[in-house]
Design a protein around this nucleic acid. Sequence first.
DNA 1: GGAAAAATCATGGAAAAAGGGGAGATGCTT
DNA 2: AAGCATCTCCCCTTTTTCCATGATTTTTCC
Lengths: 206, 206
Amino acid sequence: MAIKVFIVDDHRMVIEGIHSLLQNEPEIVWVGQATTAASCTDFLKHHSTDVILMDINLPDKSGIELCSEVKAAYPEIYILGLSTFNQQSFIEKMLDSGASGYVLKNATKEELLDGIQTVMKGKQYLSFDAATTLRQIPLQSNVPLITRREKEVLGLIADGLTNNQIAQQLFISVATVDTHRKNLLAKFDAKNIASLIKVAVKVGLI
Amino acid sequence: MAIKVFIVDDHRMVIEGIHSLLQNEPEIVWVGQATTAASCTDFLKHHSTDVILMDINLPDKSGIELCSEVKAAYPEIYILGLSTFNQQSFIEKMLDSGASGYVLKNATKEELLDGIQTVMKGKQYLSFDAATTLRQIPLQSNVPLITRREKEVLGLIADGLTNNQIAQQLFISVATVDTHRKNLLAKFDAKNIASLIKVAVKVGLI
DNA sequence: GGAAAAATCATGGAAAAAGGGGAGATGCTT
DNA sequence: AAGCATCTCCCCTTTTTCCATGATTTTTCC
């Protein structure tokens, strides 16, 4: 029984590459492709698939959102994230949103096939080894856990608001904002806001 | 006379995709591929090519550096940059380093062919229009031009150093660091360092 | 060689953040 | 009921940033 595969990626060359990699595989059926989240959901209204290869960056919405939505509507579809290098931080969110695994865009045909077949069995597939060997990525995952309020404050700080302005906007006292700020600095182990923002943006928190 | 094309990209799927796009084109000859800058320069020592399709992000060094090096050693080779979306800031540097143009990774076959043929005529090819139409890139195109020194200071600020520490590290006075800081804030039209760093990281400057 | 751009330095004052405490009020879980 | 996390608030001091204004030297480029 052949596995039906659909792909969502805004880079035509990646679509073309994967298509080319898979086109002579007997156990894979290429059911379609999309370059936007919207056209992906449209497709799913009228067609079925077993596996979706999903880029994390899409033009109209993030792969993370799309992943949640697809999983909510079609829990039987397995989603395999597609990732370029500097996006490890998003991967756990992708998995949290229901993805069954991910492969890197420089994966070989064997890895890709392995990934598709593994998730079809209901297992998780991660091509993490490839990532770490190809360049020394600091294994992070030590991204601090911050609360909803802290994230909110962090966003406003990154927008350039002062503690005072944030306090007004959130209807809380400046002292509270200051406390959140201090907690953020402590959680990120950052010397000041500059270094905090850098890490937060890189890690996808902002 | 067929055009010899070589590609350097660390994403095998992109290589595969472009290969697939070009394989049935009579006027294109695929001479080889590399996933690192090192293997690219190795290849060029023993083989020739007319055009190099070059990714801006490579594992061992940036496409910008590789571009300068290749152009210095083989000025007759035309280089066409390959870009994903959020890297507009690097493109002008790529052009400064000798590239003849660039195409986006979501380009169609026609655009890619057009790009290759245009640069072979010694002209510049930019697929910028496609970028702006496909998604509304917010600011980006007006990424401020900052100087080498400013970038250096910006990096240290983002690492969490204070003006004082930066001054010591660069052997300049605190007043100078402060001036650079002010100029950066002005160029980015940022209210404070927090918002500056956010934009700078997103735009790929850090 | 001259203009423009970049890098350097300075003073002084207002505003904001960083760093150190402590503490009460929720609500959720065990 | 006790424990824990979260959100809330406050005080104090020091450090740092932000802002305004002006100037000199070096580099770069035409």
